[in-house]
Write a protein that binds this DNA or RNA. Structure first.
Lengths: 366, 366
DNA sequence: TTGTATGCGTTATCAC
DNA sequence: GTGATAACGCATACAA
């Protein structure tokens, strides 16, 4: 019964013009409420609007963008959307965009480099006016980004420091985060603290470790090397669960005493908690665990995970704001300074950490 | 130093033509590897490709789509991307699309109805050729979808049964899922089982409950009404954590015995576990808990959550396949039968359920 | 083998 | 107040 089903066999401006008995220009002017529509007779306007409505007219975004020379679109390229970390970021981006005329186009690279490049290209061809890249996890070498995107499209990376590639970056203050985590455990009386560091290749990892060391040296705390392990580099965020699990098992096997574990991120913390549980230890009674990120699930596990929160919403918002600003003021040779934007982390206390019971930081051993 | 920064001030086919000394058509033919390019001299081809490369030519998707009358795009409208349930679905969709010429455009309605409608319109204007709607959570009334999308664009909904609106739907067999969950608990020896039902408005909720009842009556198991509660309808998935928490608290306050809880979904299960923990009960030693969905975090909590898995990847793939099929064979009056596509759920055993210790299904009370 | 001309659906500039 | 008409960048039928 219905006609052709193709999305393209559809009513155009011309059709509306013919049907309404006016010219395409008049129809266009009216439907867009262009300045000139002020001079169009009210009856005409109503008539045109009505026929357009009745015919189910939808402007063709392609034709429009081609003509207007703008897409009203911001590309959001996510490296791995399965990382819970991303979601709040996305929400922040969306919120920042909601009030504007721009629409986000979200693309997930599915943790694959080739996809990432392909989609990046695709976004450029779609003439996105700005680009927010959510680069949560590893991808060491982002040539495509620095080569293609920058100097063509205002681009901001969030979740990773790419200022070396001269790309504006929004990141949490990782060093401060490490510092806070350590400070929290220390304040609870913990002295024998095991540390699960992030993979070597990650910049985040190093900076958090610096913060940890800084606090330790400030209070004269000894960090036992045998209770400090480093996650292997891996290709996806969830693998740090296994990492946390296995490395914690290793800690336990040393039979060294420790009363707390400082984990690289929340997944690592989850892995650590699993390992402790398997060995018959309870969290937080026998061992405290602190994570990093504050991914959504950190609040719904039992016990809830104490963690260092990255203000992901705000990071997403800021990144978007920066893109919008660049769009508004197309100054060309933007200063290379103030390329890095750092946001403060925040301690979120839940139930996975608690005051140590015994006196001098005595912890568990087996 | 750089020229203008607008994404639109960029090298066009004409530019390449001029620079290479050939006509736009030759350049177009060569760059698209059109059939006619067979007859183009190799030297010409190389020359054109080289100059295009050097000039950093990227075809304009708008102009191209306008001309070709197709967008090569599938719209993916997600009602609430913060629901972990969505992510695997998205991955399934992406995978099904990867081998094709279509690109997914993901849009998140942020759990808001107005956004949903706005974005739906936007996708239509962008001339998406097909539409996959990820309708995980409540939104009772999807007029916009049934009115606009269907009969214009091949549309498939996944995660919710909208066949009443004559929209193809892909859902898990909820009744079978409820049945399996009950069967599992029963097989472990549980007889006093508390049930946390989903919100009344959700179709899923009712069907799972039917499955639960079916199993119960098959084995002659009594379901104590005071140990059966229903989540309030709510606007987002994570609220079921609080629901599970509070309703379980209620169960405990009845002082009735129960040895297991069957939760509506994994978040509800998480809430139940928290409530049990707060009252000093351990999972699974004192009470077993089974969830539904198998969201990613179900495997990383401690204990891991036994749950009924929805094959989300496959559901996403199937939904996409259906859209692609509709696209390939534009038969108009598709049969109203076979609108509903049901996928089998699967029991995933982890550590939150275990064999009951005491003899006759004796459970805990306090 | 390569070039010319036309139109996709819009918007914007001008003329009536 | 309204209507012709020319682009936007590309792909293609047709001419050379």
């Amino acid at each position: 019964m219905a006609k052709k089903t193709s999305p393209f066999t559809r009513v155009t401006l011309q059709d509306v013009a013919r049907a309404s008995g006016f010219s395409t220009s008049s129809v266009s002017i009216v439907l867009n409420e262009a300045p000139l529509s002020r001079y169009v007779a009210v009856d005409t306007k109503n008539h045109i609007r009505k026929t357009a409505q009745e015919m189910g007219y939808h402007p063709d975004a392609f034709a429009r963008s081609l003509r207007r020379r703008r897409s009203d679109t911001i590309g959001v390229l996510v490296f791995d959307i399965s990382d819970p970390f991303c979601i709040s970021l996305l929400r922040g981006i969306e919120h920042a965009l909601y009030q504007t005329a721009y629409l986000p186009i979200i693309i997930d690279a599915d943790n694959r480099r080739d996809q990432f490049e392909r989609y990046l290209e695709m976004l450029i061809e779609r003439r996105v006016e700005g680009l927010v890249v959510v680069a949560n996890w590893l991808f060491a070498d982002i040539d495509p980004l620095s080569k293609i995107a920058n100097n063509i499209i205002p681009t901001v990376v969030v979740g990773r420091d790419l200022t070396q590639n001269l790309i504006q970056s929004v990141v949490v203050d990782n060093e401060q985060g490490g510092f806070l985590a350590m400070q929290h455990l220390h304040a609870l009386g913990h002295r024998r603290i095991a540390v699960l560091r992030g993979p070597e290749e990650m910049n985040d990892s190093m900076r958090r470790w610096l913060g940890i060391q800084r606090f330790a040296s400030e209070v004269g705390l000894h960090l036992e090397p045998r209770l400090t392990s480093q996650l292997l580099s891996a290709m996806d965020p969830e693998s740090s669960f296994d990492g946390g699990l296995n490395l914690t098992k290793g800690f336990i096997e040393t039979r060294l005493k420790f009363s707390a574990i400082l984990a690289f991120d929340d997944f690592t913390a989850l892995g650590a908690m699993r390992a402790l549980w398997k060995s018959g230890r309870r969290v937080p009674e026998d061992c405290s665990v602190i994570g990093f990120d504050d991914i959504p699930l950190a609040s719904v596990t039992t016990p809830g995970i104490t963690t260092i929160r990255q203000p992901m919403m705000d990071m997403g918002k800021l990144a978007t704001k920066l893109v919008l600003e660049a769009l508004a003021s197309p100054k060309v040779g933007s200063t290379i300074t103030d390329l890095l934007h750092t946001m403060p982390p925040e301690l979120v206390q839940r139930d996975s950490t608690r005051k140590i019971l015994a006196k001098t930081g005595r912890g568990i051993t087996q």
